[in-house]
Design a binder for these strands. Structure first.
Lengths: 162, 162
DNA sequence: GGAGTGATACTCGGATATCTGGTGTCCGAGTTTTCGCGG
DNA sequence: CCGCGAAAACTCGGACACCAGATATCCGAGTATCACTCC
């Protein structure tokens, strides 16, 4: 079990887009440059976020991506599900119904206990991830980062948007 | 992100081994037959559980696997980590340190906010999974299953152990 | 009848192929900008 | 100077290779059982 690396890229990209001045956008190439990742592959994940309604894309010169709604209304879970899919990690294949002790289907009204626990664990995971928004990340990162780093980032943004 | 199918097999196998009479064991072939899964592949996961100290193996005729400790002391998380590994699903690649805004390493004393959230979510997931033991599963399944199904299973066990 | 012994059959364990999904890349469709031209 | 229009450059979006890990399998090492023999 491993989470796609694209999830990390998508989250960081969303945080960067959250601090963009109103009315501006960042194209894939700039987002990739800022994070030091391959642009062509990052594009794939940004498209997924766009399809999921998290990002909005605009074409042509000065175009690019921007958040489709306020950063406070985008949870980390939203981004993860957009990129990694919404299916739970555990899929019950109902092996209890197979083999020599199999019974008619109507005997299996209640969900498998193992499946139920997996669902509870999955719900706990998602609940934790839904408790933090992109806006929260922005605040935390600006608070924790050194003033120098913040200044460097701000300067980069200014140059790119010029 | 998807959990290996072997995890489901391992958990069900552990539950079956939990209801074995004291002093008996079940070989891979019987466990596979009971669950209707390929024996050769199930063997791989049983070996992993054996390495992790969850199962004990005995060789020769009448040999096979049995639980290495009481079912009440084996959590679902133990089985999952034995088969799927203990590494967290999310691996932070520290992309904040890459790109044009990178700073000297000493500027990054605090963990990345995104990484921290992922760790909390992972901990919540694991905590939920550690709250249920194989013994709990046995009780729940015996309670929820129809008497007919339980009888069928008991009869199968008796024939196999004979 | 009982103990010893050898063969036997059964078990696990790790090393070996195959295949799906994540990783990485590319080019075409569409739109906005912008520059030039005419009024 | 202002409006219009066409070309150009930049953007996203989906379609196409590549690779690691999960899936699936096999055969060899080791051992408890069991039958047979001998005492």
């Amino acid at each position: 079990m491993k989470i796609s690396e694209g999830v990390e890229w998508g989250l960081h990209s969303a945080v960067l887009l959250a601090v963009l001045p109103r009315g501006t956008a960042l194209p894939t190439a700039r987002l990739a440059e800022y994070h030091g990742v391959p642009a062509a592959y990052l594009a794939k994940h940004l498209q997924a976020m766009s399809r999921a309604g998290i990002l909005e894309a605009s074409q042509g010169p000065k175009g690019g991506y921007r958040l489709a709604r306020p950063a406070g209304e985008i949870t980390a879970l939203d981004v993860i599900e957009a990129i990694d899919g919404t299916e739970p990690a555990f899929v019950c294949t109902e092996i209890r119904r197979r083999g020599p002790t199999a019974m008619p289907a109507r005997e299996y009204r209640l969900p498998c206990s193992i499946h139920a626990l997996m669902n509870r664990a999955d719900a706990a995971w998602r609940a934790e991830l839904a408790s933090t928004t992109i806006a929260d990340f922005s605040v935390q990162m600006l608070e924790h980062a050194s003033p120098k780093a913040v200044a460097k980032g701000a300067q980069w943004l200014q140059e790119v948007l010029a």
